[in-house]
Design a protein around this nucleic acid. Structure first.
Length: 283
DNA sequence: ATGGGGGCCTGCCGGC
DNA sequence: TGCCGGCAGGCCCCCA
């Protein structure tokens, strides 16, 4: 599911209904997602105020006034569904949970936010806010794509010793945090790199071009998510995915969009995941 | 240290 | 119409 842009879009969508607001009641409707929930999670969330919403890689961080942070991962199919229709009248007219609604946050404002995740690859955990960086899901993550730590020198150093393909390496969250299958495909298309290229064989020029390409692709997707956010707001408040147009992802057999290229997009499988690329433009 | 593959779940889609 | 295989945007963990 959600890669960094989608997660960022969800975070931004939650700010108006959660930031600075108190959770009147947290309802935890099953004992686990991918892993068991922490002890007494519902009690630890109930009556907590959400001070701010952060993000690290694909994790949403809800910083609470209890000195704890709720870490939320959407996995492949996780969504946050905001329901404001029943604001102020929830006692008389409780929103019926929908299938796969696993955790429901009822805010003091009356807004309900349901975490819905059919495949249950998602996760939630509570952690002392001051030790977030030491959390087992966070501590091994590489730098943020928009952070100062991520630059040409860093990337060249990390790619230089890697025998595996650039596609696989860019998916490795220890190298760089936040890219998933879709945006790696898009980035490699933009720079003209074949996904089968061993990382250590990339020319310095290609490595240098990867850094801005990664940032551009992610920024454009975040911007597109911002507009989809406004659209969703007008409809049902569903946060989790948005439609975005891709140059190569899921376009097998369709013509390459590059000016003057008539080659069709190819799909191959690498480490069990689909890669889409133009064999003419990406070598 | 690195890399490959299995496994976790459900839903959907295409082919027979 | 139903069944079955394959596929899905993530990520941990085990093994070589």
């Amino acid at each position: 599911m959600p890669e960094l842009p989608e997660v960022e879009t969800v975070r931004r969508g939650l700010i108006p209904v959660m930031q600075g607001r108190r959770i009147r009641l947290a309802e935890v409707r099953r004992p686990d997602l991918r892993w068991p929930f922490p002890d007494r999670m519902a009690e630890r969330l109930t009556q907590a105020k959400v001070v701010s919403l952060g993000r690290r890689s694909k994790y949403i961080l809800l910083h609470l006034d209890t000195q704890e942070t709720l870490i939320v991962h959407l996995g492949m199919s996780g969504r946050m569904q905001i329901d404001q229709r029943l604001a102020g009248q929830f006692h008389d007219n409780p929103r019926l949970p929908e299938k796969h609604d696993h955790v429901i946050f009822e805010m003091e404002s009356g807004t309900r936010i349901a975490f819905n995740d059919a495949r249950r690859f998602g996760a939630m955990d509570l952690c002392a806010t001051e030790s977030i960086e030491q959390h087992r899901l966070i501590e091994h993550l590489g730098p943020e794509p928009f952070g100062n730590e991520f630059d040409e020198t860093y990337l060249a150093n990390r790619l230089g010793t890697r025998k595996s393909t650039i596609k696989t390496v860019l998916l490795d969250q220890k190298i760089l945090a936040g890219l998933g299958n879709i945006y790696v495909c898009e980035v490699l298309f933009r720079v003209g790199i074949c996904p089968l290229t061993p990382a250590q064989n990339l020319s310095p020029d290609k490595v240098a071009r990867l850094v801005p390409a990664i940032r551009d692709v992610l920024r454009e997707a975040i911007d597109a998510g911002g507009s989809s956010l406004r659209d969703h707001r007008q409809t049902n408040g569903d946060l989790g995915y948005f439609q975005h147009s891709f140059a190569v992802y899921d376009r097998e057999g369709q013509p390459c969009q590059k000016e003057g290229c008539t080659t069709r997009i190819t799909r191959i499988t690498q480490s069990g995941r689909s890669s889409f690329y133009c064999p003419n433009c990406q070598r």
